[in-house]
């Protein structure tokens, strides 16, 4: 829905792209408005590499309290989408989001329901068509889905593995920051006795920390490493030797990592300083060497 055709203009298409995070699973498929019935979207494989399109992006947020909509707000702004690559399997695109301006708060919550919409707090890097009636907007951090009513969207999913991929030149200009790797060290099993409530509280702290970094476009990537296994490979004389590791005695081991953006070590330290991991172990911080070409 919400892809509004502007008639004959195909290249400078004014569309409404609703960026969405699915809040409730109910309503995700049934969100249809009258407007959507007439709306056709011009995103289809007729796009060519190098095409550029202007859309209108609507970010909506709906908070529910006790199952009832409490606060609804939306903001809109231009979004320029350019096609980096087009093939049978879909598009690889990048976009730039202009300044958004908030709409008035919707007076009638029921009529304007968009139960599946919430805008991301940061600029997405690319999107691809991944299934019928849905466009995946993929960023290095999260996946969110735009539902479109247009049947012309192709059911495709070929372009996997783009998380953490190269941002376009625009984004490169916007954040010429260095990247730092945070290595989270800890003793395996040190959290085993936490209660469910304590576990939840800790997860929420991490979530808040991540969200803060994401909102400021400082978070690139994070992953946990497997608890079990681990090998250390070394060359001893003429032959390779492997030992199980990295458990050198019961020392702290790296259990996971994050990659963040920061101007320098000072900022990286400051960003890591309220990481909820700290009570459980140290965080090693190393700058990633891009050979002078950040995020290359």
């Amino acid at each position: 829905m919400n892809f509004v055709s502007s008639g004959q203009q195909t290249n400078r298409l004014i569309s409404t792209i609703a960026l969405a995070v699915i809040l409730t699973s109910a309503g995700a498929s049934s969100a249809q408005s009258d407007e959507a019935k007439t709306a056709e979207i011009a995103i289809r494989p007729t796009w060519k590499a190098g095409d550029s399109h202007r859309h209108e992006r609507v970010k909506s947020r709906r908070t529910t309290v006790g199952g009832k909509p409490a606060v609804e707000s939306s903001a809109r702004g231009p979004i320029d989408v350019s096609v980096v690559e087009a093939g049978e399997k879909g598009f690889l695109t990048r976009w730039r989001i202009g300044e958004t301006t908030p709409d008035d708060v919707t007076p009638d919550g029921a009529a304007q329901r968009r139960p599946w919409m919430i805008g991301p707090a940061h600029a997405p890097d690319r999107f691809r068509i991944s299934s019928q009636n849905a466009v995946d907007l993929r960023t290095t951090r999260s996946l969110f889905v735009v539902r479109a009513t247009n049947r012309a969207l192709y059911a495709l999913g070929g372009r996997g593995g783009h998380r953490g991929g190269r941002p376009g030149p625009n984004s490169r200009k916007e954040r010429p920051m260095a990247q730092f790797m945070l290595l989270l060290e800890g003793k395996p099993g040190s959290l085993a006795s936490l209660s469910p409530t304590e576990i939840q509280a800790l997860i929420e702290k991490y979530h808040a920390w991540r969200s803060k970094l994401e909102a400021a476009d400082k978070m690139v990537y994070g992953r946990k490493l497997m608890d079990e296994g681990g090998k250390v490979l070394s060359k001893q004389g003429n032959r390779l030797a492997t030992v199980d590791g990295p458990y050198v005695e019961t020392k702290e081991v790296v259990g996971g990592f994050f990659v963040i953006r920061a101007a320098d070590y000072d900022e990286a330290l400051q960003l890591a300083s309220d990481c909820p991991h700290l009570p459980f172990g140290p965080i090693g911080i190393r700058q990633i060497d891009f050979m002078g070409n950040p995020e290359a």
Binding site: V21, H122, S195, Q200
Partner: peptide, 17 residues
Amino acid sequence: APDSAPEVHALVDHLFR
């Protein structure tokens, strides 16, 4: 998905418990 909206509570109170 929900982490793009930090002001929305990510988890229901006492979900884990």
